[in-house]
Amino acid sequence: MISTLLIVVIGQVGCLTLAVITASVFGGLWLDDTFGTKPVFTLVLLFAGIPLSVLLMLYASRKTLAQLKEKYETEEKEPTA
């Protein structure tokens, strides 16, 4: 169970930056094309996306590490029969 949790958090961390940055760049390019505001939206969304992806990464890691810690503690209290 613990390695599955590890796999989940590592997989999430691995894809978060790609997902957030791709969404912010192409979202910004689309908005700029739609409203003719090149390059405002692209840059604003991009430079907001970078810290956002880092924060999401930290949040996902801390949440899962808390679960891992809880699992370790419950396992130590009830050693397998």
Partner: peptide, 8 residues
């Protein structure tokens, strides 16, 4: 991520 996933 690549290394850890391989290892886990």
């Amino acid at each position: 991520v690549f290394g850890m996933l391989t290892m886990v």
